[in-house]
Every structure is written in structure tokens, then in C-alpha cells.
Design a protein around this nucleic acid. Structure first.
Lengths: 326, 326
DNA sequence: CCCGTCAAGGTTAGCGCTAACAGTATCGTC
DNA sequence: GACGATACTGTTAGCGCTAACCTTGACGGG
């Protein structure tokens, strides 16, 4: 920066301003500075800038998984919102573990992020201590928090579970199963919604619920159909906590000649792209994950500007999508 | 850091060393320092560290797309390799545009990355200038470079195209079509492989090649089947440049009652998870994308340590997977 | 012509850390 | 008992930038 300044014949601060506060430098001088910098291959040093200004222009984003498209799309929303404003996302993958999240938080605090985006509400006490000791704002994504002190953007997973179960009841199914995998808080909330809806109808039966800690996959969904058949289940419908699971189930039903939905109805969650194309097409619930990313980032931008966001809790709702599989 | 040092009764540099060069500090003093830091909520400031040490412990990673699982898995490989060594990835999405890539490079150079990972070999001149002026090493992923001055980890896309086409010829197909979308260099290399194989067999016909700039999707694959039927194509096999495209085609064939592979054979590329489960299952070529990420990161780690990597060009090969659709 | 105002640019100091070099005990060896 | 090696800790200076304050000159109103 000093070299550029000398070449142009100004002081270093003017070069700094030409980059960071362009309105404070005369237009033609500014252009000369930028051109000279370009020709000299000069690029401002972000570490020095962060140190001097106490602004890292960085947002730490923690998501449970990178291979789950749901979070990747959330990330895209965050990205699209932050980049134009000059902020960069520092992405961490927690693998659904609050302990891993704590470790990542510790690492990422070293970057003095100007804001933090977390997935879910399931954090360790240490994580909570770190965050409350921090001056940077934190926004929680996916699930909604009732605590008025916290900021959250998401949708009600419990309502999703309830919605789908109610739909199945309306279609006349009475022995509705539920397959829960991963067992993260969002899956369990969907399970709660399912249970409440069935309890209200007097039809809840624990033996129609399968809980598996494995990650969701097509393969596992197919394996679950085999298991249900082997166990001679009496289910007339199965609600899978995730679309890829349900897709695997549909594939396997097709292979085994199980007629869907006549013999067994199948429902999913999240509306992944392939769900509109399977045979039969999959009844599911679309979650606004891209919008969640955008909104959470927008809220964070407000907070980092020192503004109070319009709402501290934003429910972006769910879209029920009835298709052929139920 | 000064506060922690004072509390423990040592100098600041000892605190610094307790974190960054633990072997230089006596074990029990080190523990006392770490405990005190923890209790005071002290976390080292990465910006100051980067400034003083001229090491950002950051690697810039540029990928074309976040919604394409192929690159997400590559990212996972990179992540898994870099994190244990203390490096962080700064992820940029180029949307398949060399100009966007140039813009991102400019932005990310501000972070003084210790290394750079790029996808493909298609870069603007300005990007190349930036990189050659830089002291940090760069590794190219996915495609292989013949230039001995460059470092690359990937597999031969052209060979992939050739492999699949040869397989189709061996199975007796003679009027083999190709659907190319996105039209990025990797797709075009597969198309080249396809063309060369057919030319050698004297069976290449330009009218059986479809080129579309749109991104790959199930929807587009399904639409292509409709288009092929509407155009009354004489193809007995179609090689889709991507699995999701091929999956869409399979779904649509099933819907329209087109028998696969008897009436029309269908092949894909990349081996996405669902391809083993469609009806019929999809013949495809598995690409070692996770391994590419790991290897590229490992190569970069060597270079950042000042070591020369064992090889400057690593071909991780392809795996042909014959299934029911051909 | 004085004064206040404003735009454009400069000076000074310091952000929090670590490289490089400089001690200072302690120990074993001859 | 002198000497070098080893293990640990300290001192000094500076990384590249920007916040906060300061200077200068142009301009316009009364």
C-alpha cells in the first residue's frame, strides 16, 4: 500500500480510502490509485485490515452436513445474501454433533467473525457461554426459538410432521408408520408432530415407529422396506422423515412388486428434486431452505449494522405437496 | 494475550507459544496457560497471527457449483484433509464462469491464502497472471494438465466418454446419441471421447448430438426424452453427460412406456446414489471425486510445507459400472 | 472581508500477534 | 571445574492497515 501511495504521489491512507471508502476520494484520483494498484498487482491485506478496523467481514456458518442437499441450499441462500455486501462465509460442518460444533466455534472465534449462523437449537453449554460472551450477533436457522432473546429463522418441523400425518389420516390410512433416521432434533420434532396427530386420533402405536441413528440415504430407505416386510408389519402407510429415504422405499417397492399407494402408501419430507419424478411420484412437504438461508443472512446483516431486525423469529412456513404415493 | 500472560505471570510470547508451538513450553506451565485462557474466554486473534507470521492458514477453494453433488463431495475430501492440519478452506462458487472465477480470485487474494485449489483448467488470462505472480501454490482439480509446470489431480473426462461409448458399441448399439448440457470443459471432453470412439467405428453422426447450455437436472433429462421422441430420433442408445439427466430420462421412459434398454438404452456419468436404484438401474461411470479432493489437498499441503509432491499430475482413474439400462 | 462550512487529503498511533535473537538455568562430560 | 549442549523463557521490533484527529483550500453568505 505504501508503494502504491508513493507511485501515485499520495499518502497510504488515501490508497486505503480509495478501496474501502471510495466516496472520500476524488473520482479521478481514485481511478488513478486503482489503476496503479492493479498494474502493480497490489491487493489489500485482509488480515491487516481486520486487525486495524476490528471488522473481519466474515460470518461463521455452521451446518450439520454438506452431503445433505437441504443444508447446501441454505448455504446458497446465505452466500447470495452476504457476498454482495462484502461478507464472506466461513463454513463449518458439525456432522450433527453439538461437541463438534463446540470445537468448530472455538476454531472460528479466532477469526473474530462479525456474525454467526447456527443450525438448530441443540448446542452445548460451552457453546452457549462462548456465544453469549461474544459481541457478534448469532442467528439460529431451521428451527424456531420461542425465547425472545434469541434470533431464529426457520419453519416448524413439528407442524410438518403433523401436517403429513393429518393428510394420511384424511386419505383413510389408519395404521401409519414412521421411520426416523439420523435422530437429529428436526427429525425428532417431525416424529413428535406425527405422534401428536395420531394420539389425537387415538391411533398412535409405538410399534409402528422405527428409530435409526444412521444417516438418511436411498439405500437405507430400500432396506427399510425389506425390514418392514420381514417383520410382517401391518402398516398401510409409512411416513419417512426424509425424501431420499422415501425414494429408496419407492424404488424397492417397485422392485418387490408392492403396489404404492394401494398396498402401502409412502410419504417423505423436504421435496427433493427426484421426488416429482419417481413412479409413483412422492407426496412430501417442501421446506423453504433457500429462503431460510437468505432471511437468516439478512437478519444478521441488520444486526451487524447495529439495526434491530423487523422480527426476531421468522417462520417461513411449509408447503404440503400431495402426489401419487399416498 | 497480554492479560492472560500477566495473570499467569509470564510474557506474551510464552502464551503465544503455548497455543502455536506447544513443544516449546513446559508441560505444566502450558496447561496453566491454556486453563487461564479458557477461564478468561481468551481466543487467539487469527488476523493478528496471520499478519505477524505471514501465514493465513487458509486455502482458497473455487468450485463451479454447490448444488452439483460432485463438487460437494470433492469439497468434503478437501475439508477432511485440511482441517486436521489446521488449515481452513475459503470456498468460492464460480457458477461455471471463468470471469466469476477471476472476480473471486481477486477477492480471495486479500486473504493471502497459503494455497489455492481450482476446478478445471479453463481460466482467464488475468487469473493466470494473478496466480503466477503469487508465491502460494495452486493445484488444479478434476481435469489433468499436461504442462509439467502445473499441478493437477483428476481423471480423464475424455477417456470416460470413450469408455462408455465403447461399451455401448460392444453391446451392439449402432445409433448412439449424446446429450451434452452445461457445456463446461468437462462435459465437452466427454463429448470428445464419445465422438472419437464413434469416428473410429465409422458411426459418428452430428445429428445425434444435442448441446444445451442449461444446468443438468432430472427435469431436463425427462424433457430430453420428450424431445427425442418428438424429433423421431433413430437412436438406439443415448449417452447422457450426467447421471441426473440420465435418471430423468429413465423416469420419463418409464412414464411413457419406452422399454429400457430394449427400445432405447440409456447411460449416464458420475454414478450418483440414486443410479443404483432406478428401474432399470443405470449404467454409468464412477468418478473418484472425494479422492480427488483429498489428493489435491494433500498435494497442496506438501507444497505449503515446501516439499515437492511425489507427482505433479495424478490420474485417479474411472470406474465403469455396467447395470441394466444398457 | 470575515467567518463558517465542506470536501479532500494527511499525520499519528496502535490493532494483537510472532520472528529473530538473546538470555538463563540445568545437566552431563571430560 | 570448565565447557558445551539442552530446555525453557524473555525482549525488541514490526507485520499492513485504519480510526481519530488534523490541515488546507475553496466557496458562499452576510
Amino acid at each position: 500500500m505504501a508503494d502504491v501511495a508513493e507511485r501515485v504521489g499520495v499518502s497510504a491512507i488515501t490508497v486505503s480510502r480509495a478501496f474501502k471508502r471510495p466516496e472520500l476520494v476524488g473520482p479521478e484520483l481514485r481511478q488513478r490509485i486503482l489503476d496503479t494498484a492493479q498494474s502493480m498487482g497490489y491487493v489489500p491485506n485482509q488480515a491487516a485490515s481486520a486487525l486495524a478496523s476490528a471488522r473481519s467481514m466474515t460470518v461463521a456458518v455452521l451446518i450439520p452436513s454438506m452431503t445433505n442437499m437441504v443444508f447446501v441450499e441454505t448455504l446458497a441462500g446465505i452466500h447470495d445474501m452476504l457476498l454482495p455486501r462484502g461478507y464472506r462465509a466461513l463454513i463449518g460442518v458439525t456432522h450433527y454433533s453439538p461437541e463438534e460444533e463446540e470445537r468448530l466455534i472455538r476454531t472460528y472465534l479466532q477469526f473474530q467473525p462479525d456474525g454467526i449462523l447456527l443450525t438448530g437449537t441443540d448446542h452445548t453449554d460451552v457453546t452457549r457461554t462462548y456465544l453469549s460472551a461474544l459481541s457478534s450477533p448469532t442467528v439460529h436457522m431451521m428451527e424456531l426459538l420461542d425465547d425472545p432473546g434469541s434470533l431464529s429463522v426457520g419453519c416448524s418441523q413439528e407442524e410438518g410432521g403433523r401436517l403429513m400425518t393429518t393428510h394420511l389420516l384424511e386419505r383413510g390410512y389408519r395404521r401409519i408408520g414412521f421411520v426416523a433416521v439420523q435422530l437429529d432434533p428436526r427429525t425428532l420434532a417431525r416424529l413428535d408432530g406425527y405422534r401428536h396427530a395420531l394420539e389425537e386420533a387415538g391411533l398412535y402405536d409405538e410399534k409402528r415407529v422405527w428409530r435409526l441413528p444412521d444417516p438418511s440415504s436411498i439405500h437405507l430407505g430400500a432396506a427399510m422396506i425389506d425390514r418392514l416386510m420381514a417383520e410382517n408389519t401391518d402398516c398401510d402407510a409409512v411416513f419417512f422423515c426424509n425424501d431420499d429415504l422415501a425414494q429408496g422405499a419407492l424404488f424397492q417397492c417397485q422392485r418387490r412388486g408392492i403396489r404404492v399407494p394401494d398396498q402401502l402408501a409412502i410419504a417423505g419430507f423436504n421435496d427433493l428434486p427426484a421426488s416429482a419424478w419417481t413412479t409413483p411420484t412422492l407426496t412430501t412437504i417442501a421446506t423453504p431452505r433457500y429462503a431460510i438461508g437468505r432471511h437468516a443472512a439478512a437478519m444478521l446483516l441488520d444486526l451487524m449494522d447495529g439495526k434491530e431486525p423487523p422480527r426476531r423469529r421468522v417462520d417461513l412456513g411449509l408447503t404440503f405437496i400431495a402426489r401419487e404415493s399416498t
